[in-house]
Write a protein that binds this DNA or RNA. Sequence first.
DNA 1: AATGAATGAGTATTCATTCAT
DNA 2: GATGAATGAATACTCATTCAT
Lengths: 215, 215, 215, 215
Amino acid sequence: MAGVTESIMLDRDGRSVRAEATRDRRRRELLDVALRVFSERGYHETRISDLIAAAGVARGTFYLYFESKNAIFHELLDELVARINASIVGVELGEGAPSLRDQLIATLERVFAVFDASPDLTAFVLRVAVGLDPEIDKKLSELYGRLHAFIAMSLDNGVQLGLVRATDTRILAWAVLGSIKQLVEVLVERRERDLHAMVASLVDYNLAGLLAPAR
Amino acid sequence: MAGVTESIMLDRDGRSVRAEATRDRRRRELLDVALRVFSERGYHETRISDLIAAAGVARGTFYLYFESKNAIFHELLDELVARINASIVGVELGEGAPSLRDQLIATLERVFAVFDASPDLTAFVLRVAVGLDPEIDKKLSELYGRLHAFIAMSLDNGVQLGLVRATDTRILAWAVLGSIKQLVEVLVERRERDLHAMVASLVDYNLAGLLAPAR
Amino acid sequence: MAGVTESIMLDRDGRSVRAEATRDRRRRELLDVALRVFSERGYHETRISDLIAAAGVARGTFYLYFESKNAIFHELLDELVARINASIVGVELGEGAPSLRDQLIATLERVFAVFDASPDLTAFVLRVAVGLDPEIDKKLSELYGRLHAFIAMSLDNGVQLGLVRATDTRILAWAVLGSIKQLVEVLVERRERDLHAMVASLVDYNLAGLLAPAR
Amino acid sequence: MAGVTESIMLDRDGRSVRAEATRDRRRRELLDVALRVFSERGYHETRISDLIAAAGVARGTFYLYFESKNAIFHELLDELVARINASIVGVELGEGAPSLRDQLIATLERVFAVFDASPDLTAFVLRVAVGLDPEIDKKLSELYGRLHAFIAMSLDNGVQLGLVRATDTRILAWAVLGSIKQLVEVLVERRERDLHAMVASLVDYNLAGLLAPAR
DNA sequence: AATGAATGAGTATTCATTCAT
DNA sequence: GATGAATGAATACTCATTCAT
């Protein structure tokens, strides 16, 4: 009896676990497909038909996993934003052996590599999601606000340590963020190769500016 | 007789001139309205009904002046791109009395003023037109390409004069452009006041970077 | 004084006469143009723009002469129907010297020549006006009804004279009309040349069928 | 296990078979409805709303089965043309016992019965589809071309057998076709009853005209 | 859970007609 | 009379979402 019950329970557990895993795999597949298709065609040009054709599921199935076209888009955006945030977390001005410049280069290389590895992600955040609707704009705004705050805080630290010029760090942080965003776009769209050289130039530009050192 | 004929001719001329002027005024009114409405609601969320309601004309009238919703959008984009190009032309590193820094500040202030005066224009180019369709993306790409080329050329000049560090000016030009775009966005969207201070910070950032001068 | 009055009246008359003549010329021009354009493009595919462009008048001018697109079509149809009726009137089985066969050939040649000279007319009646709306269908019905009645009457005469087999002349008259309509269509659309041979064949076909067999 | 699998497969098969059958029924229903409505109102006067109201389906459903209003019209036309062609196939001048006249009467009675049974079909081909657009005109042209060719061939056979007067059979075939078309129209529109008498008259009319006079 | 047929609200565009000049 | 800019009713088609099987 116990055995039977147990086996049933196990079965049940087994089944539900398997079911849940299947469910998750389906969701993931749909999200991956959506990232690709949205990035290729844009939000409005992407039909539900495109998504289900690419994922190989039936129309109704899509709605078992996502409430609406808008919902999967938001879910995707949230996920990508989280991934970007994660890629930024850990950028700390350490005080160990490596020079500030080297640390920055290493950090930014890691960041750029994330975007380079997923041009779809980049296109999605930089082009597809832009100007779509106020709610999405707000999420992007928050993303950039967070990145800006992080940079501003780092600059403030630098000012405290006497490393950074004492000026309007909020404005500067926006400028820094702008230069990074632009180079990410160049990296992915113009397909600039030599990520390392690009990042080094970017770091030097930010640290020392354009001017030749006075002689 | 001659007088009569003349007056008739004048009348005729007068009428056709007035008619044409009216036509042009209508087109302009529609373009202005479209810029405003597109910037507020985005391309897809803007219905023809929104445009004609805002312009106070009948549905058919719209199609008397523009072939389609898409056509007026493109016309608008072309016009704004031309305006931006024009606002940039004239940014020359003069060799007169004013210091380089002051010249740059003055120039960028003029540029920023253009965007500040028409937040709609900024929203249109920076958000509304982004990621809409390949043809539009191409136009934006060309705009930024031109701006980038202009900056890169200026940097190359600076290198020749020994003013600018001899590094990868193409990459640097993108970084410069990115910092400018971002601050324009901040200026218009976050409604950062004190345009002058912002531009001064931007110029110093670009010229000298973030680092405190070594002691 | 009288002279003045007279001259004024003459002027007036002259002017109004001239004006009316101009008016008629315009109407005619528009009707001619309409026949051509309707025949080329069909009723629904013909836009008022097509008519005024072809006639070289302004949009409003069209409506000075005709109440509507439908009105000019009806006027045209009435005119063409009248022309066809006229071309038929006079087809009488004379009893003079020429043989019946020769008379019929001569008569039908005249009829066919009318259509041959104006393929537009033929296209209009045989294709363009067909199935457009109940009122127009009625007019065509009446046209064919009249033609049918004329043929039936002629057959009845022939029966009385012992020339025509005594059968259901109403049915036969439809068959005769059908054969004529079809050959007109062939003449005009398939551009069958040698009108004379065609008509001779047609007459022989009909005669040898309708006549009581010679004994 | 096999049984279960089988039953599942059967179920599946059953479902898809039923689904497909349902699909076909829907298409047929829409085609039938369209034939009726188009014949009543004409192509341009028929709105999609008329079709779906008459069929009792939703707007989108219509487009699930047909690409456009134009597409269903063409499909209908093709089908009717095929039906007419089929009704003609088999009209062979046999050499068995029944007299030529009787054979022709029997054959034409069958043909006329087809049109009589579906006045909509007749109206569609003879009125609704006429003059609509070049592509449709071409299809009708081909239909009549085929019918003409068939008649001409039969006549040529008759000439060989010494049954038919040796004249321009191409012209005669058009005349014959014209007489038939006209009587079909009379039959259906004027609702001439006594199909048999009509056909007998038609055959006598044609035979006595086409046959070489008995000597 | 999976399917895909059915739904119907939503919208750009056309074009005959009007009317102020 | 002549003009042509303005009008707005009318309509085919799309596509996200639902729901019976």
